[in-house]
Design a protein around this nucleic acid. Structure first.
Length: 281
DNA sequence: GCCCAGGGATGCG
DNA sequence: CGCATCCATGGG
């Protein structure tokens, strides 16, 4: 895989470790549109237009550095996958999602997005986020930016309900007001335990959502978010029937250590995509 | 009508 | 602590 940065695009030839559709569809990002062999991807107020074929991927954007980091292009995923393929549980999942990359998204956008994701499905999550962008975000000429914190601070609980947040509307209102006093960038330099503790203090953020925020928004890779699918994976692999997500999180984090975030994403995509039903419920 | 979706808050022991 | 119950909403 060869990556070349130009002033207005990134060109990746022989993209063995990057499949755009897999990376977009594996549940870590909600603002994108796939159309045949092209895709539009949005983050904060930024935009990238991506095209691809079997030989190369082109990422067209006004902010090359942002999307270079966004798609984690400085990291060698072959090494990660070789290591994870040694795990008998993971081998088929890694092969299935071998083009997944962990996206480095905006911390603030990820906090808001994953509060919405709790006990929700992807389609509704996408619709709610798009509603927030279109009603409260800045118009960028051909699309709407993700609303800034100042823009969201003015949104009422009723308006959050109109966005389809349901019972999460009040949690969102509380958290948005509170985030006004928080230096999100400073959070990235703090210890993992401190980050986790802070995130849990936000309304609407529990252990799973906190781990997603750390993985997709703070660049912390040694976390293992456990949702309903990972719960199924765990029960399937260990021949158990538990719903104790704290226990599952501890065991899987201990098993995959520094590569927990990657392992989790391969598992999630493989099981959800194949709708493998395990014993839970 | 029930169950599920990238779960969390609350209250009770 | 652990555990049960409730929580909007749309799709299957």
């Amino acid at each position: 895989m060869k990556i070349i940065k130009y002033s207005d695009k990134i060109v990746i030839t022989h993209p063995y470790d990057f499949d755009v559709i897999q990376t977009l569809n594996c549940g870590q990002i909600f603002r994108f549109v796939i159309d045949g062999n092209s895709a539009k991807v949005y983050s904060t107020d930024k935009f990238a237009y991506i095209t691809w074929d079997s030989e190369k991927i082109e990422i067209h954007t006004d902010d090359v550095e942002y999307f270079y980091n966004f798609f984690d292009l400085d990291r060698d995923y072959s090494k990660i996958k070789d290591e994870l393929r040694k795990d008998e549980f993971l081998k088929s999942a890694v092969d299935y999602g071998s083009g997944i990359r962990i996206i480095n998204n905006d911390a603030y956008e990820i906090i808001i997005s994953f509060i919405i994701s709790a006990n929700n499905n992807i389609k509704r999550i996408k619709n709610s986020i798009e509603y927030l962008c279109q009603h409260f975000g800045k118009y960028m000429g051909s699309y709407y930016a993700f609303p800034t914190l100042n823009e969201l601070k003015k949104v009422t609980i009723q308006q959050f309900k109109q966005a389809g947040l349901g019972y999460r509307a009040e949690q969102m209102y509380m958290t948005v007001q509170r985030l006004a006093d928080v230096d999100i960038e400073n959070l990235k330099s703090e210890e993992k335990d401190q980050q986790f503790k802070f995130l849990l203090s936000l309304k609407g953020v529990g252990e799973k959502v906190a781990n997603c925020i750390m993985l997709f928004g703070l660049g912390v890779k040694d976390v293992f978010p456990v949702d309903t699918w990972i719960n199924k994976v765990y029960n399937d692999l260990t021949h158990t029937n538990t719903t104790d997500r704290k226990k599952i999180t501890q065991e899987l984090t201990a098993r995959y250590k520094d590569l927990s975030g990657y392992a989790q994403q391969y598992f999630f995509y493989y099981y959800r995509d194949n709708k493998i039903n395990a014993k839970i419920k």
